[in-house]
């Protein structure tokens, strides 16, 4: 990490900071200073680690215990075998894009009147032009290792502070540097925005002939969010979990279950599956007394069995996920 030092303007204490850091709070006199000539000035924030490992354990165990068939003494029996605390970078970029387009759009002529509509349609092309002009916000995950759970995680930016390398050191956390610099992050957001406008254009036009756009970044900041990467043991088995250290939410966790739970799932599946298979068997045999009754068994039994397996075998839990646009 690129570190540099300055002197606190208030009490002259030496302060160390990252090259991209824009604000620094002096640990001695608690004066916040803004640095005006940074190599590239990014508004760089961090979320504090508000949950220590004991609190995060309570949150994790609480979330796991909400599932059926989990060991009730989990508060005692869960043992962490590995604890990693890492800060991950996200860029939050607001982009305004004005796109002027020219091309050929479709229109239709109708013939053969039928009630309130027509029987025949023929589509033609005609020159069309227009403008899309809007502003959207993008959250860009910018760490080197691709973790889908972190990319899709619905982040919270509440409680953010100016980034201080010292604070991360205090909690022994690694800071993953952003793979994008400021310009690349802006480019990435603009590219996303262009994709959206392209999608809109495809809806308006059949052929795109000319596109002119003016992107403008209305605001951008870099946010480092702390996550716990945990490995834990329940009994002899190993499980993994990722937790948000700022809000205590579960990014993803594997759910340990008791043996009795698997027995119950097994019994239910066998029962429903049995009904389904028996239904198919008798339907093929075509026994007169049963009529078409076996068809019912085949449909209901198999659907129930598949649903039981689908829900019962679900071994991961995510508390919240970002909605896809």
């Amino acid at each position: 990490m690129n570190v540099k030092s300055i002197m606190c303007p208030n009490c002259a204490a030496p302060l160390e900071m990252e090259a991209t850091q824009s604000h620094v709070t002096c640990p001695y006199c608690s004066v916040t200073s803004e640095l005006k000539k940074v190599s590239e000035l990014i508004e760089h924030f961090m979320l504090p680690v508000s949950y220590d490992i004991d609190q995060i354990k309570t949150e994790l165990v609480g979330d796991i215990l909400k599932h059926p068939g989990t060991p009730e003494d989990l508060h005692k029996s869960l043992q962490f075998s590995k604890i990693d605390l890492k800060f991950y970078p996200y860029f939050i970029v607001t982009v305004h894009l004005r796109t002027e387009y020219k091309g050929n759009g479709e229109y239709a002529t109708f013939s053969s009147r039928y009630k309130s509509g027509y029987r025949r349609i023929s589509t033609h092309l005609k020159p069309e032009q227009g403008v899309f002009d809007d502003t959207r916000e993008f959250i860009i995950y910018s760490a080197e290792d691709v973790q889908n759970d972190l990319i899709n995680f619905e982040i919270s930016t509440r409680g953010k502070r100016y980034f201080q390398a010292l604070e991360a050191e205090k909690v022994n956390a690694d800071v993953n540097s952003s793979i994008f610099n400021l310009d690349q992050a802006k480019e990435e957001a603009i590219r996303n925005m262009r994709e959206i406008h392209k999608g809109l254009m495809m809806k308006e036009l059949a052929q795109i002939l000319e596109v002119r756009d003016e992107p403008e970044v209305k605001g951008v900041y870099l946010l480092h969010i702390p996550f716990y990467f945990l490995e834990f043991k329940v009994g002899k088995k190993e499980y993994k979990a990722t937790m948000d250290a700022a809000t205590g939410r579960t990014v993803i966790t594997q759910v340990p279950r008791e043996t009795s739970y698997w027995v119950q799932i097994g019994v239910l599946t066998t029962l429903f599956g049995g009904i389904g298979i028996a239904g198919i068997f008798f339907a093929v045999q075509q026994i007169a007394l049963l009529g078409y009754f076996s068809i019912f068994g085949a449909i209901a039994g198999l659907v129930f069995a598949i649903r039981t397996l689908q829900l019962g075998l679900k071994s991961r839990y995510r508390e919240t996920q970002r909605k896809k646009r």
Binding site: H67, F293, I299, R307, Y317
Partner: peptide, 28 residues
Amino acid sequence: RYEVYVPIIAGIVAAVIGFFTLKNTFKP
């Protein structure tokens, strides 16, 4: 049971109900 559509419809109705009741049984 002697009308082919009755078991089919009943099967589908049961499947739809079961889809939701089972979901409620397992959700956290």
